[in-house]
Deep mutational scan, measured.
Amino acid sequence: SSPEYTKKIENLCAMGFDRNAVIVALSSKSWDVETATELLLSN
């Protein structure tokens, strides 16, 4: 995975989300952090 994707994963994990959930959310939202965060918060 690219450093850009890794940084997005790390940033969301730092907010307390599960790493696997973060990866699923990001990949399902075309790696857009904002919409992935909304998805994680709604679960």
Rank of each mutant, 00 (worst) to 15 (best):
L12C: 03
K29E: 11
V24C: 07
N11S: 14
L40G: 04
V33T: 15
K29T: 15
N20F: 07
L12S: 05
V33L: 09
T37S: 09
S2K: 03
S2D: 08
E10S: 08
W31R: 08
T6K: 08
T37L: 13
C13R: 04
G16Q: 01
R19A: 04
E38W: 10
E38P: 04
G16L: 00
G16I: 01
D18T: 09
I23N: 13
P3W: 08
Y5A: 08
S28M: 10
D18K: 07
E10Q: 06
G16S: 02
N43L: 11
S2I: 03
D18I: 00
D32E: 08
C13M: 15
C13I: 14
W31A: 07
E4Y: 06
E4R: 03
T6D: 12
E34H: 04
K8T: 10
V33F: 05
L40E: 06
V24Q: 15
K7D: 15
L12G: 01
W31Q: 08
L41F: 09
D32F: 01
S28H: 13
N20E: 15
N20P: 15
S2Y: 08
P3D: 12
L39Q: 11
I23E: 15
L41D: 08
E4H: 07
G16K: 00
I23R: 10
K8A: 10
I9N: 02
T37C: 09
A14S: 11
L40F: 01
V33I: 10
F17D: 01
D18E: 14
G16P: 02
S27Y: 03
E34L: 06
S30T: 07
V22Y: 00
Y5D: 11
S2R: 07
I9W: 00
L39T: 11
E34Q: 13
I23Q: 14
D32M: 02
V24W: 14
W31F: 15
L41W: 10
V33K: 05
A36R: 02
K7N: 10
L40V: 03
F17I: 04
K29C: 09
S2W: 02
D32T: 02
E4C: 02
A21M: 06
K7I: 11
I23S: 11
A14H: 08
I9P: 00
K29S: 14
A14L: 05
L40C: 02
D32Q: 08
T6I: 12
S30D: 13
E10W: 00
L39K: 07
D32N: 14
P3N: 12
V33G: 05
V24S: 15
E34T: 10
E38C: 04
I9R: 01
S27V: 10
T35N: 13
A36G: 04
L26N: 07
I9K: 04
E38V: 05
L39E: 14
S2L: 06
A14C: 01
V22D: 12
A14K: 12
V24N: 13
D18Q: 10
N11R: 12
T35F: 06
N43Q: 14
W31P: 09
L40M: 05
T6E: 07
F17A: 06
N20S: 14
E38G: 09
D18C: 01
A25F: 00
R19C: 03
A21G: 04
P3S: 13
P3L: 12
W31I: 04
N43P: 06
C13D: 04
Y5R: 13
Y5Q: 13
E38H: 10
S1K: 15
T6Q: 14
D32V: 04
K29I: 02
N20C: 06
A25T: 04
A36H: 00
D18V: 00
E34V: 09
D32A: 02
K8P: 05
E4V: 06
G16A: 00
L41G: 09
N43C: 04
E34P: 13
V24A: 15
A36D: 01
D18G: 04
S1G: 10
L12D: 01
T6S: 11
L39D: 10
N11M: 11
E10T: 05
N20T: 14
S27C: 09
F17G: 05
T35V: 11
K7M: 07
A21W: 02
A14F: 00
S27D: 12
V24R: 15
C13E: 06
L12W: 00
E38K: 12
K29N: 13
N11G: 11
P3R: 09
K7H: 10
A21N: 06
S27F: 04
L12E: 00
L41P: 06
C13V: 14
L41M: 14
L12R: 02
M15W: 00
K8R: 08
V24L: 13
G16D: 06
A25L: 00
S1W: 12
A25I: 01
S1Y: 11
T37V: 10
D32R: 03
A14G: 08
A21K: 14
N43D: 14
A36L: 00
E10P: 00
F17M: 03
S1D: 11
K29M: 11
R19M: 06
T6N: 11
G16E: 01
V33C: 09
T35P: 13
A14P: 00
N20M: 06
I9G: 00
K8W: 00
S28Q: 14
P3E: 13
E4L: 03
V22W: 01
N11W: 03
M15K: 09
A25C: 02
L12T: 02
F17L: 04
N20L: 07
E10H: 06
D18H: 02
K29L: 07
N11Q: 14
K29F: 04
A21Q: 12
W31M: 05
A25R: 01
V33R: 05
T35W: 04
N11P: 05
K7A: 13
L39V: 13
S27G: 10
